[in-house]
Simulated scan of single mutants.
Amino acid sequence: MTSIHHQVWIDAPLATVYAGLATAEGLSQWWIAHQQSVIDGDTVISHNPGAGHGVVALKVLEIIPERCIRWEVISRHPPQSPASAWTGTEIRFALSRRASPGAWRGLPHEG
């Protein structure tokens, strides 16, 4: 299975980052408008990136406040849409408090 790992350093309280990822309302504040619904007992967060893609639906697999958010892409898309390759993909956010990378190297903190 292919895996992509991104590590992003955000100078913000953990609770703020979590709130921006854990709900449709939070995601809508910084990304694109999202909706939240319940389908077959599962929480689903969705957004529409535009014509040709259709609605991208993310089933919430796990939520651990201020620690972890896991989604699975459950929507299906036309083959010409880049979103078609994402169906079945798991997206995971592991949140933790750490020093900024600049602090490790003795570099000044930018911010």
Score class of each variant (00 low, 15 high):
N48V: 08
G41I: 03
N48T: 09
N48S: 06
D11S: 14
R92Q: 12
I74K: 01
S37K: 04
G20A: 09
S81W: 09
V17P: 03
S75L: 04
G102V: 01
A85G: 14
D11F: 04
V8K: 08
N48P: 05
S75I: 03
P101F: 00
L107I: 08
P108K: 11
Q80M: 04
T2M: 06
G54Y: 05
S37R: 10
I69W: 02
E90V: 15
H53L: 08
T16V: 13
V73D: 05
I32E: 07
E90M: 13
L27P: 01
D42E: 15
A24W: 00
I69K: 03
I63G: 01
I69P: 04
W104A: 08
H47D: 08
P108T: 04
E66K: 03
H5C: 14
H77Y: 07
R98K: 10
E90K: 12
Q7P: 03
A85I: 12
H47I: 02
L95Q: 07
H5E: 15
G54P: 03
W31L: 13
P65W: 03
W71D: 06
E62C: 06
A94E: 15
I4E: 15
R67C: 10
A22S: 13
I64H: 09
P108A: 07
A19N: 13
L58R: 05
R105H: 08
M1A: 13
I91F: 12
L95T: 02
L14P: 04
E72M: 09
C68M: 14
G88C: 05
G52L: 07
S46W: 05
G20W: 00
E110C: 11
P101H: 00
H47K: 06
H5D: 15
P78L: 09
A85P: 11
A85K: 15
R97Q: 14
D11K: 12
R67Q: 15
S28Y: 00
V44G: 00
V73T: 06
S3G: 11
P79S: 14
S81L: 08
P13W: 02
A94V: 13
G102M: 06
S37P: 08
S96G: 10
A15D: 14
W31N: 06
T87A: 06
D40G: 05
F93N: 06
E90C: 14
V8Y: 12
L61M: 13
Q35S: 15
